[in-house]
């Protein structure tokens, strides 16, 4: 808890940077910057969501892209039905994610360790195949969205900048929410269970309910990211829930440092910028990215996760 002041400063700095970024883009006359930054923010939300259970709960979910997909398809499906309001899109995404997370979480959380990793991965793949076979929404190819979500009936989000600030506001709100959760009674039980589940039982807690709740909260947050991502790309496809995407989310969390929330935001930023930069260098950028990833894991003493886990 003694690192909070530092984190508060770092958070202020990072979020201020995000807040003034569009003006920077204006100054540089580079509108693409805002587009990338929106993408970064959407992923930052998802990484934040993952860090909540991975960093604090010790639950390595390798299927969080499923929630990106649920969020994204909420937009596609509701829009097709003529419902374009962002609030309703978010509500549907959250409801869908809550249902999916409750069912798959209840089953996955009966297991631990490797099992948990593989099962979350498998369930995400199930979601992937569900949308692949949903031919009404383009199956494998996905669908292009006719328009972005509306706010109070107005198409304000058609402006890239408005979309950016909406995403930013959501990120900020969810970040503060996540910080509050981790410092609450609930957060303490979640963290305690990661530290030593037997001890938690021996003082009277049943970890399952808390872990499941955290899992559902995390899924709902990630679905919000999916809604924003769909709006940013104007396009929704099963690729949103590809298992590589789940892997990338884990990479983001670890790049930024497991278990401190702000790290997830920073990690998403770093990972996506690295991707952008590498893809300018070569079309075979995944190879370079993979090499960097392997090197980072192998040669940072203890591995990255160990490196960051030592702090409270």
């Amino acid at each position: 808890m003694r690192i909070i002041p530092t984190r508060a400063w770092a958070a202020t700095a990072l979020f201020t940077a995000f807040a003034i970024l569009p003006f920077l883009a204006d100054a540089l006359d580079d509108s693409y910057l805002v587009v990338i930054a929106t993408r970064i923010i959407a992923y930052a939300i998802a990484a934040l969501a993952l860090d909540l259970i991975l960093g604090y709960g010790g639950l390595v979910s390798f299927g969080h892209a499923a929630y990106l997909g649920i969020g994204a398809y909420s937009v596609a499906i509701l829009s097709r039905a003529g419902i374009t309001d962002l609030g309703l899109h978010l509500a549907a995404a959250i409801a869908g994610a809550a249902i999916f997370a409750t069912i798959t979480g209840a089953i996955s959380l009966r297991t631990k360790g490797i099992y948990f990793i593989m099962i979350t991965l498998a369930f995400a793949q199930m979601g992937y195949f569900f949308f692949v076979s949903l031919s009404a929404y383009g199956g494998d190819d996905g669908v292009t969205l006719a328009q972005r979500s509306t706010l109070f009936g107005q198409p304000v989000l058609e402006s890239d900048r408005a979309l950016y600030y909406t995403a930013f506001a959501l990120l900020l709100g969810l970040y503060l929410l996540a910080v509050a959760i981790t410092r609450s009674r609930f957060g303490r039980v979640l963290t305690g269970t990661r530290e030593n589940p037997v001890r938690m039982r021996a003082i009277g807690f049943s970890p399952f309910r808390y872990q499941l709740t955290a899992f559902v909260i995390s899924g709902c947050m990630a679905a919000v990211a999916g809604v924003m991502l769909a709006n940013q790309t104007n396009y929704v496809s099963p690729a949103f829930m590809d298992w590589h995407r789940s892997g990338e989310l884990v990479v983001m969390v670890v790049f930024g440092g497991v278990g401190n929330l702000l790290g997830a935001v920073a990690g998403a930023t770093v990972a996506l910028l690295l991707e952008e930069w590498l893809s300018i260098l070569t079309e075979h950028w995944p190879l370079l990215f993979g090499v960097i990833l392997v090197m980072v894991v192998l040669y940072s003493r203890d591995g990255l996760s160990g490196l960051f886990r030592r702090r409270t």
């Binding site: 990793i117 892997g247 497991v258 993979g290 090499v291 392997v294 894991v297 591995g303 160990g306």
Partner: peptide
Amino acid sequence: PHLDQVLATFGLVMI
């Protein structure tokens, strides 16, 4: 930790 194993082998998949 499993997390490191997942990440490193994920990197290998990319490579």
